[in-house]
Simulated assay, not measured.
Amino acid sequence: MKRILTIVAIAGVLSSGAALANADLAKAKNCMACHAVDKKVVGPAYKDVAAKYKGDKAAEAKLIEKVKKGGAGVWGNVPMPPNPQVNDAEAKQLVQWVLSQK
Rank of each mutant, 00 (worst) to 15 (best):
V42T: 10
Q101W: 01
K57V: 12
P79M: 05
V95C: 02
A19P: 09
V67S: 00
K92T: 06
K62G: 11
I7Y: 07
A23M: 15
L14F: 06
V8N: 11
P84R: 01
L5M: 12
A21R: 13
V98K: 00
K29D: 02
K47N: 11
N77I: 14
W97P: 02
A58C: 12
M80P: 05
N22L: 08
N87R: 08
W97E: 00
P79E: 15
A61F: 13
W97D: 01
A50I: 09
A18V: 06
G73I: 08
K68W: 00
V74I: 13
A58G: 11
A26E: 02
N83G: 00
Y46N: 10
I64L: 07
L25S: 01
G73A: 14
Q101G: 01
L63V: 03
L25V: 03
L99P: 02
H35E: 03
D24G: 10
A89E: 06
A59W: 06
Y53R: 13
D88E: 12
D48Q: 14
K27F: 03
W97T: 01
V37P: 11
A9N: 11
K102M: 05
A58T: 14
G17K: 09
A45V: 06
A19M: 09
Q85Y: 00
I64N: 05
G73W: 04
G55A: 09
G73Y: 04
I4R: 15
G73H: 10
W97Y: 08
N77P: 08
A18G: 12
A9Y: 14
Y53Q: 07
S100I: 01
V41P: 14
L5R: 08
S15I: 15
S100F: 03
M32H: 06
N77H: 08
K102C: 04
D88Y: 01
A51V: 04
N22E: 07
N77E: 13
T6L: 15
K29N: 02
R3V: 05
K39M: 15
N87V: 00
Y53F: 12
A89S: 06
V78K: 06
L25R: 02
K27H: 15
A61P: 13
V98H: 00
P81R: 00
V37S: 13
P44A: 04
K29M: 06
Q96N: 15
Y46H: 10
